[in-house]
Structure formats: C-alpha cells, structure tokens
Design a binder for these strands. Sequence first.
DNA 1: GTCGCGCCTTGATTTGCATCAAGACGGCTC
DNA 2: GAGCCGTCTTGATGCAAATCAAGGCGCGAC
Lengths: 256, 256
Amino acid sequence: MRDVDLERVRALPLFCGCTDETFRTLTTGAFLQRFPAGTTLLLEGDQVDFLYVLLDGMVELEGTWNDRETTLAVLRPVSTFILAAVVLDADGLMSAQTVERSDILMISGAAIRRVMSQDAGFAVAVAQEMAGCYRGLVRTLKNQKLRGGLERLANYLITQRLRQGGGATFELPHEKRVLASLLGMTPENLSRSLASLADYGVEVHGPSVTITRPAVLERLAKPDPLIDNHQPVTDALTGQAQQERWPLPDRGIRAA
Amino acid sequence: MRDVDLERVRALPLFCGCTDETFRTLTTGAFLQRFPAGTTLLLEGDQVDFLYVLLDGMVELEGTWNDRETTLAVLRPVSTFILAAVVLDADGLMSAQTVERSDILMISGAAIRRVMSQDAGFAVAVAQEMAGCYRGLVRTLKNQKLRGGLERLANYLITQRLRQGGGATFELPHEKRVLASLLGMTPENLSRSLASLADYGVEVHGPSVTITRPAVLERLAKPDPLIDNHQPVTDALTGQAQQERWPLPDRGIRAA
DNA sequence: GTCGCGCCTTGATTTGCATCAAGACGGCTC
DNA sequence: GAGCCGTCTTGATGCAAATCAAGGCGCGAC
C-alpha cells in the first residue's frame, strides 16, 4: 500500500486520534483493492468481515425488500462504510456496490473490535463517527417523513449548490435514476419535478443545474438546519462526525 | 437516588462494561427527576447538556418541519436517549416529551465525554450503543421507503405480537394517533388500514388486537430480518446494541 | 455509417394517501 | 344528570405519486 494512501487514511477523523501502534495494527492486516464500476462489494444480510474505506471512486449503499430497491446513500472519497456492522459484529443491513471504478481499503473487522478496547482514543473516534452517521440518518428520516417529493428535491438542490461552492451553476453528482432513488421517488417523477422547478428559477441541462433565483427556491424549500446539513464539504472535513460537528466553533466557546 | 435505581442503570449495556470509578463519576453528578405526562424534556435545536435515561414511564421522540410533526420513536424503560448529540456535543435533532409520568435520570454530557477518553471499556460501550441505534434507524428508513402503509402496519403488528410473548392477542402499546405518526400515516388512514386487515385475520377491539391467522397476515406483510427486528424483549436485553446483536449466539460460534 | 441499448423525458391512467367533514363513543368536569 | 373535549371511526373528495406506455437522445459496438 502506498504511503500517500496511508496518510489519507491516517488523516481521517476515525484514525487521527489513535496511537501509532493502533494504526499500524489495523493497517498491516489491511489491503487496498481496486474494483471496476458496478461491482457488488457486499450483499444485504452478508456477514461483514471488513471495514471499508473508500479512497477513490464512488459507492452506493442500497436496501431491498420484496423486489423493490432503494438507495440509502451515495459515498464519495474519503468515507468509511458499514462501521456499525463491524462494531457489533453483525450482518450488514444494506448492500454496497461501486458506481465508478473505486479504490477501497479493507480493514479487518475483528482487528478493529480488538483494538477498540485497548485504545480509548480510537474507541472515542469510533463512537463519534457512529454518532455522526446516526445523526445523518435522523436527518434523512425526517426529510423523508415530513417533506413531499418536490420539497425534498428543492432542498437537495440547495444543499448541492452550497457544497459545490455556492455558485449559480453546479453539477448533479450522480445519474438521475440514482438521485431519484436517493430522494425516494421514481425517475419519471424526478424528471417531472425538475421540470416544474423551472417556475422557481431552476434550469437543467443534462447534469448541469443553474439556480437563477435562490430566494424563490428557498421560499419553496424552507431549508432547516435540523434536517439539511449545509456544511460546505472541504478536504479538511471528512467523516460523518466532523460533518455533524459543524457549526461547532461557537459551541466550543460556550462550553469553555 | 435509590440504590435499586442505581443498579438498574449499572446493568444497562451502556454502563455494565465501565469501571466502578467511571460509574461513580457519572452518577454522583447525575440527578433523578420525575416528570408528569406531556412534559417537553427537550426541544429540537436545543443544546443538549445531559444524557437522559428513562427508568419508568414512556417518552416520545419527534421531529417537526413547517408545522408538520412526526414521531420518530417511542421509548420504554430502560432506555437512554439523545446519546448522539451528547457524544458530539451538538444540538438535538429531535424533541422529546413524556407520554406518561416518567422517572428520568439525567447525566452530565460533559462528564460523559470526559470519561469516555479515560475508560476504553466505556467508550466501546458507547460506540456499540450508537451502532445499535444506527442500525435501528436503517431499519426504520428501509421500512419507510420500501413498504406501503398497509405493509408497515402489518409488520408492526407481527413484531408486537412476538415482543409481547407470541400469543394470538396483545395490546397496542400507545395511542393510535401516536402509532399512526410512528408508522408515517394519518390517524384516519391507520383506522382504515386496521379495518382492511380484518380480511387477513386481524381483529381489533380498542387497544387489544387478535391475530387469528398469522400465516395469512405474514403472506401480506413479508417480514424480513433485515428490516424487522423480531427479537423478543426481555429484561435481560435492554439497549439498542443488544437488540441489534441478536441473533448472535451462532455468530459467536462461527467467529470462534 | 447503422444498429442497439441505456437513460431520460413526456403523456395517460390508476392507485394510494391526505384532507375535509361529520358523527360515535368514552371520560371528564361541574 | 348535562355538557364538553379528545380520540377514534367512517365517508366523500382531491391531490401526489406510482405505474404503464411510447418516443427521443447519446453513445458504444461493429
């Protein structure tokens, strides 16, 4: 495994608080693998033996029931996934497959569980990461239960705009059918909803979206910091916990 | 605080792995309080200063947006809540209110965060509890996105039957309007859905439900271990992590 | 180039669910 | 007891979303 990759992993919130020894223990048994697009990494119900760390590419997490299928999340580097199943040594509740060719680091789950009880700093980092993932899901569930399809889409666009720098034009990060599934609607309905957002200043050309009147769109979307995480995504902030900690600077002051 | 209450807390998965010193640190600063029914313990967006432990009574967790409201969970003793916000020192994403008169132990969040980095056993327990909560939410989200209202209700009834001993007759644990909100439907629709389940051998008299032909109901509900957690609730198994660990007996053997 | 195959879009139709409205029932106060 | 309020039920209606169906478009294979 290349040093540059090791450093990227070491910089993850999940690993930056652990001891060198812990990190060495975890990475010596680990291996980095490259998967082509469309590879199924993990099937719902499978025993989970590894923690996965996405270093490059894109991964989709999905759930199925009764021949239906839904996208639960789409991951970008650098992210870890199925940590919860690893912590509890339980079966995975979702499937994972690559969307693009992806570089993925696989770390022994047994090693992670072993090391947690020896390195409190690492255990704390795992707890924080899990808490961040949990809060992300709470947001998703509220989004799903409280908003209608058009509102979910409008808020998604607003969030994307901010995450991609806040300019008027940005790119949809996935295929539209994936986006539809993520938003809990059919591709047909996503298409229609995008069309009807033209009235609110949204122009769509293929994967490129331009929001001409943000204020108008916001009046429809009613974004809410308790549902939408508008944190800008920077290189410095990876991992679910960090994303949930924002905006914590002033909290730190309050607590001090 | 009474010794008998202290012991119940000590026996929680979250606390039974920590040192005596950790436990003493956490509980000396804590206080037990009794709240009447309908008390709001915590409002969405509030800063969270305490970990709450429900010792007696019933608590509802809810989320709101744009004058809409949805129930995210209903808790029974002994449960902890808002652990994620405590771990990350973040604002709460949901409101909490008592449904019945409730005895609730409040433990300093700052103390919890402090103690985590000193007691690896405790930090591991927190990580496991968070992982269990996370997996519970994944199940909820799949339930919500993949199934229709009638299917959610049918599966809810099957789960309740098992949790209450598996007899043909059992009781709905909450008011029907709360149940409706939990299942993501209106009270009107819950009423109609219950009525239409008569065709599948479900008899309802007030809060009491009888399932006369479980096989027929299951053919409609198609329960799935990756969505429905059919673990029987016993006194020995409290806490989200433990509930997610079942059925682990044979996993232990495989791993050995 | 031409074919074929996904993806996306658009339209027509049906279904599921929310909403609106009214009434039944039980528990409560006075 | 009468009156009231909240819960639950039932029916009528309207809207949102899924489904079904057809066609356009981009792109790679050959």
